[in-house]
Simulated scan of single mutants.
Amino acid sequence: MNKTLTEAGGLINELKSKIAGDSVDVVFCVPAVNLATAVELLKDSKIAVGAQNMHFEESGAYTGEISAKMLTDIGVEYVIIGHSERREYFGETDISVNKKVLKAIEHSLIPIICVGETLVQRQQGITIDLVRMQTKIAMQNVSAEQAKKVVIAYEPIWAIGTGMTATSLQAQEVCLAIRKVIAEIYDEETAETLRVQYGGSVNAGNAAELFAMPDIDGGLVGGASLKAEFVDIVNYEK
C-alpha cells in the first residue's frame, strides 16, 4: 500500500526509461487504484502490469473486492495471490488461495502464488513441510499445461520488510523443494518450466547471488521496487 496515483506515475516513468525488458520479464504489481494508469503508461514497453490481489468469484455482493474480469478488461496480465500479508492480516487461507488461482487461470491471468514460513515455523524445522503443503493446495485442480505458466514465489515471512534475507543456500533449498513437489504433482518438464522466485528483502546487493542459484528464477521484490535501486536488481547481470 504505497504510492498515490501521481507518485506511482512518476516512479513508473522513471523506471521504464531505464528498463529495456529484453533479457528478463518485468512486472509492476501496483495498488488497484493505480492499475489502469500503469497499464496506459506501460503500453508501449515490454513491462507487464499485475494486481496485488483479486476475488475468487466472478461477480456479486463482495463490496470492495475486484474480480479477475475487471483486471483483464483493463489490460492486467498478472496477479499476486496469497501474499503473506494477505494471509496474516486479511484471513486468506490455502483454500481461498486455490480458489483464486483457479479463477485467475480461467481468465488467463498469470498467478504469482506466494508461499513461505514464519520465523517460529523455521525454528521448528517445518519449513519444507509447510511450503510443500501450501504449494500442493494452491495447485489443486490446476492442469500440467496451466501449471507451466504459473509463478510460485517463496517468501520467508521473517525476511519481508525486516532487512533480514534468507541466505542464497536457504532460499535455494526451499525453491528446490517447491520444484520437486511440482514434479511430484505433474512431471519434470512442468517443474522445470514453471517459474520459482524468491521474495524477502531482495535488493541490489544480494540479487546476483540469489538469482545465480539453480532453482531461483527471479525475485518478488518488495521495498526495493519503490526506489530507483530496482533498476539495478533487474540489470543484475550487467
Rank of each mutant, 00 (worst) to 15 (best):
S168E: 14
S168M: 06
S168Q: 12
S168N: 09
L169C: 08
L169E: 15
L169W: 06
Q170S: 04
A171H: 14
A171K: 08
Q172K: 12
Q172S: 05
Q172C: 08
Q172H: 09
E173C: 05
E173R: 08
V174N: 06
V174E: 05
V174H: 04
C175R: 00
C175E: 06
L176T: 03
L176W: 02
A177E: 03
I178R: 00
R179M: 10
R179K: 14
R179W: 06
R179V: 12
K180V: 13
K180F: 11
K180M: 12
V181S: 08
V181H: 00
V181L: 12
I182P: 03
I182W: 13
I182M: 14
I182L: 15
A183C: 13
A183Q: 14
A183L: 11
A183N: 12
A183V: 13
A183G: 02
I185T: 09
I185F: 08
I185N: 01
I185G: 01
I185A: 08
Y186T: 00
Y186F: 14
Y186N: 06
Y186A: 04
D187N: 14
D187A: 03
E188R: 02
E188P: 01
E189D: 09
E189V: 04
E189H: 08
E189I: 01
T190L: 02
T190S: 01
T190N: 03
T190V: 14
A191V: 10
A191M: 10
A191F: 11
A191R: 07
E192D: 12
E192K: 15
E192I: 06
E192P: 01
E192V: 07
T193Q: 13
T193R: 15
L194E: 07
L194P: 10
L194T: 15
R195F: 07
R195Y: 12
R195K: 12
R195W: 07
Q197P: 00
Q197A: 03
Y198F: 06
Y198T: 02
Y198M: 05
Y198V: 04
G199W: 02
G199L: 03
G199S: 07
G200W: 05
G200M: 00
G200N: 03
G200S: 04
S201W: 01
S201I: 09
V202H: 00
V202L: 03
N203H: 04
N203A: 03
A204E: 15
A204K: 15
G205A: 11
